[in-house]
């Protein structure tokens, strides 16, 4: 092998382990799922027939799928908005100069706690809290906030809101920690300059804090959008998508198609649609990151 060719191939040699891993863990599964979505049914059917895009037409005509899309949008948008507000408020509290470092450390640990728990622990804990015989209902009845027990997860009217509440609780610490890191990176000079120009706290927040945090906030929103869109474990372990289909999201719809109806091609079709949405967000995210650089 001549030296010139060896020099050319060496970088690819270093990349090879990563390329092999990405092929096995990422590219091949994605290609397989896309391929599955083009057949009448795979796995359950040993001789699948190629049907082109007709599964996509069937999914897009399915009212249950659109109900799931609606619930997913509610779940994602409300979660992101609440994550942002709660994360920002807590980060501002932890960044204040009026609290001692020790106090801030204690609160930082308390506020970050929900992030430490796995989805199953969160689901079990909240199922007990929201149970008709649980703690929350005890206080609701004690303080006469409702004439009867509230069936948070069992009522079709409020189950989606209840599940969203659980997701908000479990997800805000990521925002809080990221925003806190951003706040600590803002130069005090900017606040001093704003104060000299007569800006009050609100103006400082809108004129200095928000613009300085903008790159972090946009990244957080895009990442949270993708993560929340794919949220499955929390919903599955609390309501299973019910009662009826009150908390059905795209991820639970896909699971049911695959693992209880054994319609793997339809499940793959739903997964590909979700992949397309996530990819679009991903492209925006990468573009945004590049623009920031």
């Amino acid at each position: 092998m001549n030296a010139k060719l060896k020099k050319k191939l060496t970088p690819y040699g270093y990349l090879l382990p990563t390329i092999i891993l990405m092929m096995i863990l990422l590219v091949i599964p994605i290609v397989m799922v896309i391929d599955y979505s083009l057949y009448d049914n795979v796995i359950a059917n040993k001789n699948p027939v190629f049907v082109g895009l007709s599964n996509y037409a069937a999914v897009l005509k399915d009212s249950a799928f659109w109900t799931a899309v609606g619930h997913t949008l509610f779940f994602v948008i409300v979660s992101i908005a609440a994550h942002m507000i709660i994360g920002m408020v807590f980060a501002l509290i932890l960044n204040t100069r009026y609290l001692s470092t020790r106090t801030k450390g204690i609160f930082r640990a308390i506020y970050a706690l929900p992030w430490m728990f796995t989805a199953s622990v969160i689901a079990i804990t909240w199922r007990m809290l929201l149970d008709p015989n649980g703690v929350l209902n005890y206080f609701i009845l004690l303080f006469h906030l409702s004439p009867e027990k509230v069936t948070f997860l069992a009522s079709r009217d409020i189950a989606l809101q209840s599940v969203t509440l659980i997701n908000i609780w479990s997800g805000y610490p990521f925002y809080m920690i990221s925003i806190l890191a951003g706040l600590q990176g803002i130069s005090p000079d900017l606040y001093e300059a704003a104060a000299l120009d007569g800006a009050d706290a609100v103006h400082s927040f809108t004129g200095v804090t928000i613009p300085q945090l903008r790159p972090i906030l946009i990244s957080l929103i895009m990442l949270d959008f993708v993560w929340t869109l794919q949220q499955f474990a929390l919903i599955w372990m609390t309501t299973g998508g019910g009662p009826v289909n009150a908390t059905e999201t795209v991820s639970t719809w896909i699971y049911k198609q695959g693992f209880t109806k054994f319609q793997y091609s339809m499940a793959s079709t739903g997964a590909v649609i979700l992949l397309i949405v996530c990819t679009i967000i991903g492209i925006f995210y990468v573009r945004h990151q590049k623009a920031e650089e």
């Binding site: 199922r127 149970d131 008709p132 015989n133 027990k149 069936t151 997860l153 069992a154 009522s155 079709r156 189950a159 609390t238 309501t239 019910g242 009662p243």
Partner: peptide, 21 residues
Amino acid sequence: LSDGVEAMHEQDMVNEFENGR
């Protein structure tokens, strides 16, 4: 029926029985 049956698993029912409710 027990309150909130729409969100209950079989294990929740067993828990209710075990707890004498």
